[in-house]
Design a protein around this nucleic acid. Structure first.
Lengths: 206, 206
DNA sequence: TAGATTGTTAATCGATTAACAATC
DNA sequence: TAGATTGTTAATCGATTAACAATC
């Protein structure tokens, strides 16, 4: 294990490798090569080898990588060889979809609570969760020691909600609100905004 | 307008600038500076000036940028000074949420059709759209000349659906399926996978 | 063994930052 | 005018690629 600081751009590719490897494992494959994995994920074989080698010598010359071994290592590196509880803030359509999403459990995540400010929604059930009042949020998150959140609130509410989450001890926010937010340096943010993603592609269309 | 090829990493930041500028405009602001915009989006002022200057001289020394003028220019550059029709493939929870999402229209997008393979879903309504049979998809997309799609299908179906979309003439795919897909070079893909985004953050958590 | 593929090095390529003249 | 801020240059910093010895 290399003690140097690993660039975030490399960290960002590891989940993509892991996802592809888990798929390969499901399909019964036992080993793969940087070449094969690269074709699957659209990244050069050299880069995949370089990325992986930052963390150790996980491959074998001549035969490549053991898929299950590499999965274990990547899960360890990414800290997803455990379950992370996540809260959802905002019980609109997108919050609903995430609350019911089946794709978290085998990737290291579990939705733990869902919050909304709308009294008409509080108390209702979505995907097995009872929607809780956002006014109790800080305390609930803090006492459950939850570190991750998904924000599916309007842009106008995003900064205030983010501030409350940070206060509650959240250290990673997946932000579905279509706006940038400011958080302290020790808090990570990832952005999911379909319009922004789409606009990145229209540039190339006629 | 610079005729050189603009790096994709710059193109990727423009929608973020545009989103912030539209927010400023809604709040009644008339001008801004690279400094102010940078603090809002978390990018250095120098980089913002450099990015914008790739396309022309849109600012004024001493006063900064006219927000409405810069919005116009960015919309023009990104090709979103028009409406793009989009199809949704997969009418599960995520497809539902996207079909009902109100955040597309003022960013240049309009959902035009929703498809699913499930006969139990075909004919039902979501968000004002009637779910259509996926077997008619290629022909429907082709004759409507639609160039963009959002895929909210299981990972196992993603590659086959992508192939059909490409055949139908789609040139940009926003892929919500948790898997990488392979498409020809003239087709753009953007990925939205909450687990992948979350795993990029857990690396930094204890 | 022969063939395949890793891990790593050095070279190349590309992106970001700092600084400042120009100018509103 | 004085102050502010752009657009741009040069320097720095960082990422990717190509190549190959090592070795399974």
């Amino acid at each position: 294990m290399n003690a140097d600081k690993i660039p975030d751009i490399i960290i960002g590719r590891l989940p993509v490798y892991l996802r592809a490897l888990q798929r390969m494992a499901e399909n019964g494959m036992k080993t793969t090569s940087s070449q094969e994995l690269g074709e699957l994920v659209g990244i050069s074989a050299a880069q995949i080898r370089k990325d992986i080698s930052q963390f150790g010598e996980f491959g074998k010359q001549g035969t490549g990588y053991s898929i299950s071994f590499l999965i274990d290592k990547l899960r360890e590196i990414l800290n997803v060889n455990r379950m992370w509880d996540i809260v959802i803030v905002g019980a609109g359509d997108m919050g609903h979809a995430l609350a019911r999403y089946q794709g978290f459990s085998n990737r290291g995540f579990r939705v733990a609570m869902v919050f909304d400010i709308d009294n008409a929604k509080v108390g209702q059930k979505i995907g097995g969760f009872i929607i809780e009042d956002a006014s109790t949020m800080t305390e609930r998150i803090r006492s459950a020691k939850i570190k991750m959140a998904m924000m599916t609130v309007p842009a106008s509410a995003a900064q205030a909600v983010a501030d409350k989450l940070v206060q509650a001890g959240v250290r990673a926010i997946l932000n579905y609100a279509p706006t940038s937010i400011n958080v302290p340096h020790n808090v990570r943010v990832q952005y999911i905004d379909p319009s922004t993603h789409l606009q990145r592609m229209t540039y190339y269309l006629d």
